[in-house]
Design a protein around this nucleic acid. Structure first.
Ligand SMILES: NC(=O)c1ccc[n+]([C@@H]2O[C@H](COP(=O)([O-])OP(=O)(O)OC[C@H]3O[C@@H](n4cnc5c(N)ncnc54)[C@H](O)[C@@H]3O)[C@@H](O)[C@H]2O)c1
Ligand SMILES: NC(=O)c1ccc[n+]([C@@H]2O[C@H](COP(=O)([O-])OP(=O)(O)OC[C@H]3O[C@@H](n4cnc5c(N)ncnc54)[C@H](O)[C@@H]3O)[C@@H](O)[C@H]2O)c1
Lengths: 289, 289
DNA sequence: CAATCTTTGTGCACGCGTTCACAAAGACAT
DNA sequence: ATGTCTTTGTGAACGCGTGCACAAAGATTG
């Protein structure tokens, strides 16, 4: 899932908790499905099951919106769809621009789920001159030079960034300067934005790493110990003076810390680990990128 | 950002809070960047700034892993990169399969960020016979019929679902049955999985809706009142619990209605929605989520 | 109208996550 | 050694989110 936002610790939006806001789209989706099947009402129990949440939580969530249910009966589907849509601001059209029409950007542009939910792709923007004018998903790609004009002409307030990480902050700055106040970022970078601008990020790599963590733990439980490998391990070299540019590692940039320093400090490490009550045999061999 | 997981209320994984696990990849990314610049050490303050978090939070996060810092100096970059990598299980190779090689699936297959962190795309799977054998990102697409064999032959434990929503649950079931225990789901559906299987979802539509909510609130603050929609509004009033396909099922256990709703919701994909054309008559200018 | 049954809305308790604030640890200078 | 300075590691307080459990509301039946 996409996670992470520039938190607004301040006033709780209109009294609606952030966690609740994040679940409203889920409820809306389930309700829409029921609506299409012409189901008139649902109980909190049924709807909660469809949305994959606890029924008490769902009821509490709805209570923030008001009392839209009928005791002994449940919630009126159509009415609730409307109320949630209104609360989420989906009763109006939101023009969106996608910046960076590469593999991902093109996929997003082709994604039907955009338009079907009130989000209209107002423009596709890319820095590659070769792409200018070329239609993607029926929409001609425009050059970055016109970014500001495009944003203003279309009254865009939501921008999607799908450029390489290196360009993300710069693109973000331009979007914000042009008037965009909500950004969905797919680039693996932490964007810094001024107060009042919301950023949400979708980070595939992070999701996979979280899954890997749990996966490893599952495997560890089944097979008792971890694949032990008594190789040399990088360790906090004796104590590198922060100031000096003299890297802890001479030549090699990132993969060779298992040289002199490491070997010498290996003993040190074992001691430290033992002292702190950490198993010392848990040392794999491979290094990540 | 991707959000939502099948929670494991049980034992807190090895004492490391879920929230911390979710931030480790962020730290790792920042640390890797420092490592490439041959920076030997960082203070919690600097690293926190780079990762976009509070420094106290970062220190507490690291404290769950052990005491890897040096007071008065900071953290050894190389050592920390190693420790976090190990904790996340990135010191080993994770073969991954992507199911559903359409717009999104193809983009994912082409994504370099996969391999760079120890995730290897072991196979691409699609149900379309026309795609079988066709190479995407240099990897030949294989047919769904061989899904089980592919999973087992490659020892895959992590699967990515990028099929239409309607097929997601079915694909999920097959993946799980074949041995996959971690799933990253891009389809807009709530997947139900047995205990022990982790699911994380990336839902673009939900992210945009959350942004829209805040966007609307910002606009509302500026312009005082709310966009008074004088439109006709469905009211719960008259709606009587019709007898027909009344959802208020007799004694349905709660399992049946779940899968039923899920299946229905699944069908509510962009494509389906577009094909059916918007059911105009009802409600405001809202659209299904 | 009264009794019964269903389901909402919410008070309450609990646990997790965040943040502050500071003692202690170590580096470094003298 | 001793003192100063920097930065970690963490105790403690606080707030948010979750879920239980139940009273109240309304439907439904007799
Ligand atoms: N492809 C995926 O599945 C995937 C998954 C997760 C994250 N990401 C991230 O999404 C981003 C895009 O990925 P991709 O695979 O589409 O990359 P890509 O290289 O295919 O596309 C990037 C596009 O951005 C354009 N671009 C570069 N600089 C720009 C600028 N300053 N302004 C406007 N456009 C600019 C390029 O011309 C190119 O068309 C990357 O940051 C990547 O890490 C991609
Ligand atoms: N494209 C996007 O940017 C985007 C964004 C968010 C979410 N999504 C979701 O991701 C999913 C895929 O989107 P897409 O745009 O790539 O769709 P798509 O239609 O382009 O691709 C879907 C692919 O899945 C294959 N498929 C269908 N049923 C299958 C099955 N049972 N087993 C294996 N493969 C099967 C199809 O042959 C097709 O190649 C959808 O659920 C969509 O809602 C897409």
């Amino acid at each position: 899932m996409a996670t992470g936002r520039t938190h607004r610790p301040a006033t709780r939006s209109r009294g609606i908790p952030e966690a609740t806001v994040a679940r409203l789209p889920l409820y809306l989706r389930a309700l829409t499905a029921l609506s299409e099947r012409s189901v008139p009402t649902v109980s909190s129990e049924e709807l909660a099951a469809a949305a994959g949440v606890n029924s008490a939580k769902l009821r509490k969530d709805f209570s923030y919106l008001g009392s839209y249910g009928t005791r002994g009966v449940g919630y009126d589907v159509e009415y609730l769809v409307y109320q949630i849509s209104r609360e989420l601001g989906l009763t109006q059209d939101w023009p969106v621009v996608i910046v960076g029409i590469g593999n991902l950007g093109a996929a997003l542009a082709n994604y039907g789920g955009f338009a079907s939910r009130g989000f209209r792709v107002a423009a596709l923007i890319d820095a590659d001159p070769a792409m200018a004018g070329k239609p993607v998903a029926g929409i001609p790609v425009q050059h970055t030079d016109d970014l500001e004009r495009i944003i203003k002409d279309n009254g865009v307030s939501i921008g999607v960034i799908a450029t390489p990480a290196g360009a993300a902050q710069q693109v973000c700055d331009r979007l914000v300067a042009a008037g965009v106040t909500s950004i969905l970022n797919f680039a693996p970078t932490v964007l810094s934005v001024p107060e009042g601008v919301d950023v949400r990020k979708v980070d595939l790599s992070i999701e996979l790493q979280i899954l890997a963590f749990h996966e490893q733990r599952k495997a560890g439980e089944d097979a008792g110990a971890v694949p032990a490998a008594g190789q040399a391990v990088p360790s906090p070299a004796a104590s590198a003076p922060a100031g000096a540019a003299a890297a802890a590692v001479p030549g090699a940039p990132a993969a060779a810390p298992l040289s002199a320093a490491a070997a010498a400090a290996a003993d040190d490490d074992a001691v430290a680990a033992a002292r702190k009550g950490r198993p010392e045999g848990d040392v794999p061999a491979v290094m990540p990128a």
